[in-house]
Every structure is written in structure tokens, then in C-alpha cells.
Design a protein around this nucleic acid. Structure first.
Lengths: 248, 248
DNA sequence: TGTTGACTCTAACGTAACGTGATACCTTAA
DNA sequence: TTAAGGTATCACGTTACGTTAGAGTCAACA
């Protein structure tokens, strides 16, 4: 395949391919008599790898090191790429939800803390990019047997995301009464969530106590009230109602 | 808020904020006696907008034009942003599925055409970016009443995506016989899909004829065989079997 | 067989968006 | 009051190409 064909196929410029050739990142396997670059299927695969790494924000220099490193395992790299793209996706999701909230905010419906306004932008939060930088970064390029991080980081993150979502739902219910059907339904979900996903088990008593803690312990209050003023108080009340009602 | 605070909040460098000030993209509302930049809440909101546009690949110069334009409507911009991020997300999804297939491919399980190898990279495919460029691009910045594109573009795209998915499923079944249960189940889905989503109605006869066309008309053949060599032929056979079996 | 028109090459300067010092002033907690 | 950390302004460096410019290549059509 000639330059333009490749360029069109992957939607990059011819100049970019020239550039990659110039810096020795991707030199075509063959050239015609006239000096035309001819890219092989293998070249295309390398290009695919290059673009993946680029998408993840690696500088070309590092990409060159990476794919030329003897310890470079395409299979492993692909798997890590997958993980990182998934990360990127959840970051995108957060950005989308940030937009949604901004839109609501502008309508004056909810308050948004400054921190919330930038959710999804914090790239340093991505453990996989860090991991990759360690794995393929300056010093480690030639250390061949680095290990993949355990899944716990990812899991913990997903958990946090879900909790935040639930908090947000509560925030929408603030102006109903703690006894209202919606509030109680939400609280029920909250109870089940705490018992299913966190590994702990809360009795109804403990659940009620937890609610009280939301108000007593300012670390909780602060965290929760981020999602809406008075939310901690509201949740405590709703949790108490729920516990008392289901005890009988 | 001082530079570092803002920088930390949104995970960008202080230099970046300086740069934005330099080029007049984001000048802080206040400065102290000593010349320290002080960013207001309003500044933060503008920054959020800037980062959104940046995320979408707009050059800073254009971003400046955009947010300073009298016709700039934040609400509308946010909504369009949302759409574009969703687009980006589906593109990410495609990239992820590309990776999955590459991994399989390396295991020798399935064949991947070159075109498939780069799915998700084709940024020009994104109609919203184009739309945005038209809406906020060079000439149009001051035309205040540009219209949003009709939904049909989006719909058509979604349809195309679904069709491609179905084709891919078929590609996986190529080595079974056209009479096999899986193949027939897939064909049935195909038949229902064509009758439900496309607006046309295919009789069993017409369906069979359509299958024949896949082989006779090279535009079809070419398009379908993209997903696997001989796929058009396979589909024709399977469609014929399906039509004949269900006629009785 | 000549002549387009689309594609290709190398070479070299241009540009966008910061990074990276260097040097000097400001603030605040110990 | 002093040390640590933050901030300011130059100003040059860097990355990843964009953008002409000038010239050769190739397939198709007149």
C-alpha cells in the first residue's frame, strides 16, 4: 500500500507517515525504484500499535522505545490498552455527567461544587496510565517482568463512582420528605447497596447509627453535603424512618 | 483562587494558565497588589468551557473566538458538547472492540480486514465535529442563527453501526454450514432487522432475491466481503435456505 | 504518444501549545 | 526573621506535525 492509501485508511495525513518515517518510528518494509513507500500488512499492524499508544498520550519518542524494546509483548500491551481505554471511557462518562450537571446548574436546579465541575478531567486519577508509564517509562523499558496491577484499584474506583451516583440521586429527592415513597425507596437501595457491595453487613440498628454519623461526623457531613446542602441531615432522617419501619 | 489552586483542581499546569492569560483566552477577573492572578467562580466556568472545547480538538485561537462570540450560547454549546462526547464514547467503544478483535486475531482465531483494524480511528466520521466546525468555524462564528442538524444523520449512523455488527456476527459463523442452527438463527435476526428498522418490508421471496443480489451486484459483494472473504456467498446461501424452509 | 491529473518525493521553514529554566519578588508558618 | 513554597515575567526549547515549494512518477484518456 502506498502512503495515501494508508493515510486514508487510518485517517491521518501523508505528512504524518512521512514524519514517522523520518524519525524512524515506522519505516515501510519496501520502497519502489522511484522511492515510493510501500507499507506491508506488518507495517499496518505496527501503525495500529503506534496509534493506540498515541491515543493514550505517549510521546512518539517513547512509543518508538516501547515497540522496539525486546521486552515488548504485543498481546500484553493490547490487554493493557484495553484496560486504559475502558478507563478513558469511564472518564468520558464522568465528563458527560459533569455536562449534564452543568446544564442543570445553569437552570438553577442544583448546586455544583467547583471540584465537581471538573470531574473527568483529572487525568492523574488514571492508575493505568501511571502503570504504563512505569512499565514502559524511562527506566523500566528493559525490565522485562513487571507485573500488572491487581484489579483492586479498578474495583475500588468503580465502587466510588456508584456511591457518588447514589448520592446524586438522593440530592434530587431533598425537597421531598424523608418519609416519602421515593425517599424510602432510595434509602432501601442504599441499604442493599451497602450490604451487597462493600463486604460489610449492616443491621437495621447499625444502619440507623450510620445515618446519625452522617450528621455527627463532619467528615461524612462534608463529603455528603457536597452533593447538596442538608443532604446528610436528610439522609439521616430517611435512614431512621426506614430502620424503624422495617424493625416492626 | 490562586493559580496553583486552580491548576491542581483541574489538573493542568500553572504554565498553562499563564499561557491562557498571555493569549487572552482566560484572563483572571482580579489580581492582587503583587500581581498574583485571582480566579473567580466565573473564571472557573469559562475554564470548564475551554477545556471542553479543547477536549474536542479545537485550537485555542478558535476557542477564544467561540466563547467571545456574541452568538455564543452556553446552554446550546453544552448540549452539543454532550452529543460530541457521546460520539467520542462510541468511537472509544469501537476502538475497544477493535482491540478485542486484534487480540483474537493474534490468536489466529478470526481474520481481520485492514479496514477493520482501524475502526474507531476515523475521526472524520464524526458528524458532530464537522457540525461544530461549521457552527463555530471561521465564517460562521458570527452567524447567530445556524440550525442544528436534523437527527436523521445520527439515526442513519446508528443504523449503519448495527448493520455492521450483524455482518461481523455473520463473519464469525462463516465456517459453519449455511443450514446450521446458528447461521439460521442469525439469518432470522437479519430478516427481522431488515423488516423492522429499515422501513421496507421484505417478503421471503424478496429476501431470497436480496441474498442473490449480494453475490450478483459487486457493490454489495465488496461491502459485505469486507467483513470476511466469501461472506456474501455464505449469506446468500443461508438466506435461500431460510426462505425456502419458512415458505412451506 | 503526448498530456493531463492525481500521487509521490525531499527539503525546509512555520506553528501551536505549552515545557523548561533563570531570576526576582511575595507570603506565611515556625 | 528566616526558610519553604508560591508567584511573576521574560525568553528560549520542544513536540508533532502543517505548509508551501520544486520536481519526479504513474495510469488513463485524447
Amino acid at each position: 500500500m502506498k502512503v495515501k492509501e494508508v493515510a486514508d485508511l487510518v485517517s491521518i495525513s501523508v505528512r504524518t507517515l512521512h514524519h514517522y518515517d523520518e524519525i524512524g518510528l515506522l519505516t515501510p518494509d519496501e520502497t519502489t525504484e522511484a522511492g515510493y513507500r510501500l507499507y506491508s500488512d506488518d507495517n499496518l499492524e505496527t501503525l495500529q500499535q503506534v496509534l493506540f499508544f498515541k491515543e493514550l498520550g505517549f510521546p512518539l519518542k517513547k512509543i518508538k522505545e516501547i515497540i522496539n524494546s525486546p521486552s515488548f509483548d504485543r498481546q500484553e500491551a493490547l490487554k493493557l490498552h484495553r484496560k486504559m481505554l475502558m478507563e478513558k471511557r469511564t472518564r468520558l462518562d464522568r465528563m458527560i455527567s459533569t455536562i449534564d450537571k452543568t446544564i442543570e446548574h445553569k437552570k438553577g436546579v442544583i448546586q455544583m461544587t467547583n471540584k465537581e465541575k471538573f470531574e473527568g478531567f483529572d487525568f492523574s486519577q488514571n492508575p493505568y496510565e501511571k502503570e504504563a508509564r512505569e512499565r514502559w517509562g524511562d527506566e523500566a523499558v528493559d525490565r522485562s517482568n513487571a507485573k500488572l496491577v491487581s484489579i483492586t484499584g479498578e474495583e475500588r474506583k468503580a465502587l466510588g463512582d456508584r456511591m457518588n451516583e447514589i448520592y446524586r440521586n438522593f440530592a434530587d429527592l431533598r425537597d421531598t420528605s424523608p418519609e416519602s415513597e421515593e425517599a424510602q425507596a432510595a434509602i432501601k437501595e442504599w441499604y442493599n447497596f451497602l450490604n451487597s457491595d462493600s463486604g460489610n453487613h449492616y443491621s437495621l440498628e447499625a444502619f440507623k447509627g450510620l445515618g446519625q454519623m452522617y450528621v455527627d461526623d463532619e467528615r461524612f457531613t462534608k463529603n455528603i453535603d457536597q452533593f447538596g446542602k442538608g443532604l446528610a441531615r436528610f439522609m439521616r432522617d430517611a435512614m431512621a424512618v426506614y430502620a424503624d419501619k422495617n424493625k416492626e
